[in-house]
Simulated scan of single mutants.
Amino acid sequence: MARHRIFAMSFASIYPLYVQKVERKGHTTAELDQVITWLTGYDDAGLRQVIDSEVDLETFFAQAPAMNPNVSLIKGVICGYRVEDIEDPLMQQIRYMDKLVDELARGKKMASILRGSATPAV
């Protein structure tokens, strides 16, 4: 099976695009970081470290401290695919992150984006 090119992209190259997207819609980098932290378990220092070291997305998710146990509650369409139906686990994790960023940019309430979880202080 062919490896997807997105797996080799660095998180550092995608992160600024996420920042632009949410800021363009009136949201903050802190809110973006909160969403990514909720999904992956990285803290602020860990997030900065993976950005600075330019790890690829495969490594980013492989080294994630703890994927949130509520990721299965993330549903919907991203890039024309239902995230809950994506078979490749890594691609699904990437699309979960895309979906959460889209929800933030669209102005969805943080409690809803975090699937009802308590919102950690950022």
Rank of each mutant, 00 (worst) to 15 (best):
Ala2Leu: 09
Arg3Lys: 10
His4Leu: 10
Phe7Lys: 07
Met9Thr: 12
Ser10Met: 06
Ala12Pro: 03
Ala12Trp: 00
Ile14Thr: 02
Tyr15Val: 02
Tyr15Asn: 02
Tyr15Ala: 04
Pro16Ile: 06
Val19Pro: 06
Gln20Cys: 08
Lys21Ala: 05
Lys21Asn: 11
Lys21Arg: 13
Arg24Phe: 14
Arg24Ile: 08
Thr29Phe: 04
Asp33Tyr: 01
Gln34Met: 13
Thr37Ser: 15
Trp38Met: 07
Leu39Met: 12
Leu39Asp: 01
Leu39Arg: 05
Thr40Asp: 10
Tyr42Pro: 00
Asp43Leu: 00
Asp43Asn: 03
Leu47His: 00
Asp52Leu: 10
Glu58Lys: 09
Glu58Val: 02
Phe60Ser: 00
Phe61Tyr: 09
Ala62Pro: 01
Gln63Ser: 08
Pro65Thr: 02
Pro69Met: 07
Pro69Ser: 13
Asn70Phe: 13
Val71Ser: 06
Ser72His: 15
Leu73His: 11
Lys75Met: 12
Val77Trp: 11
Cys79Lys: 15
Gly80Asp: 09
Tyr81Gly: 09
Val83Ser: 08
Pro89Gln: 03
Pro89Leu: 05
Gln92Trp: 00
Gln92Thr: 01
Asp102Pro: 01
Leu104Pro: 01
Leu104Phe: 07
Leu104Glu: 03
Ala105Ser: 14
Ala105His: 09
Arg106Val: 06
Gly107Glu: 05
Arg115Glu: 12
Arg115Phe: 05
Gly116Lys: 10
Ala118Met: 12
Ala118Val: 15
Ala118Ile: 14
Ala118Phe: 12
Ala121Met: 09
